[in-house]
Nucleic acid binder design. Structure first.
Lengths: 154, 154
DNA sequence: GACAAGTAGTTGACGTGTCATATAGAAAGA
DNA sequence: TCTTTCTATATGACACGTCAACTACTTGTC
């Protein structure tokens, strides 16, 4: 390494590129499918899933943001768009004058009910179906470990 | 399955979510790092890497788009931005009046030369360093296989 | 109570990607 | 050659995320 840089080996480069390509394709296909078949982007889907898992389909902006690991600004922008589309409504918070709740609407419930089976089916047919159980386990382990390292600031 | 949907098991859901989270985090960190340390987004990086691998640092828009698997429109928009920033220049094509070449500039070469070691180092420290050789191999295999299936139209 | 500090959410500007459409040149057929 | 059709790139509108202010409310702390 005359230039002092520990360049990637052919295997490393291949693995890295394949991994990145996999994700781009997979997510691309999945979100395109979701969008065209159910008019929901994956971000909408994530928000709606969260809201259906919570009493009254009602959750504070900040809690939603924490749950999805989104920036509050992103949440604010995105909920504004979802409100415009009638998927959720905003409710003021009595306890805290600054706060707000997002509440899923009937239209939101219908949208997620229609989208969820599609989504699950797509995750299976585009991804899970092509992995062995052992591979899936390895993948999960690796993912958890690396995310852990990233969170430690690695 | 009374509702006819083959919902994900807890393991499948965990694996899928971890995998998605991994990618979001990893790519997020990597592009943030690249952006702040070298003023290049990963898209810029990809374009410049391609141009340095090609004679005279010169390539047709369409060939770049094919190589990166980008839509032509994306390439056109992105190159316009890179031209504005002085990383590449546009050259008309003598053979084909419709065509155009993107040519890397000196500034582009400097930018990629500065960014590449950073990028490699980050891929190592954020990702490769946390995987065993066997895991990396599995990951590459899975990635290649699934991308293959996606391309077949699965 | 008053004032500093912190917190919840908003806003606007900007870069990026997608889609649909437009323009202009190339190729193919009559 | 003339016309149809195809191809290379551009363009404009829009959705999405990020960043950096900003507003308004809350929570100390004195």
């Amino acid at each position: 390494m005359t230039d002092g840089v520990n360049w990637l080996t052919a295997e490393e480069q291949h693995a890295w590129r394949s991994f990145v390509r996999l994700h781009e394709r997979l997510i691309g296909r999945l979100s395109h499918l979701l969008q065209t078949e159910s008019q929901l982007a994956s971000a909408d889907y994530a928000v709606l899933v969260n809201l259906t898992d919570v009493p009254d389909g009602r959750q504070r902006y900040q809690d939603l943001a924490r749950a999805l690991e989104w920036e509050k600004s992103r949440m604010s922008h995105h909920l504004a768009r979802m409100i415009r589309r009638g998927l959720v409504v905003r409710e003021e918070c009595a306890d805290d004058g600054r706060g707000a709740f997002a509440v899923i609407t009937e239209a939101g419930r219908e949208a997620i009910a229609a989208a969820a089976p599609l989504h699950v089916q797509a995750v299976r047919s585009l991804f899970l179906d092509h992995l062995t159980a052992a591979e899936l386990r390895t993948l999960a382990e690796v993912s958890v470990r690396v995310v852990g390292k990233l969170d430690e600031g690695a």
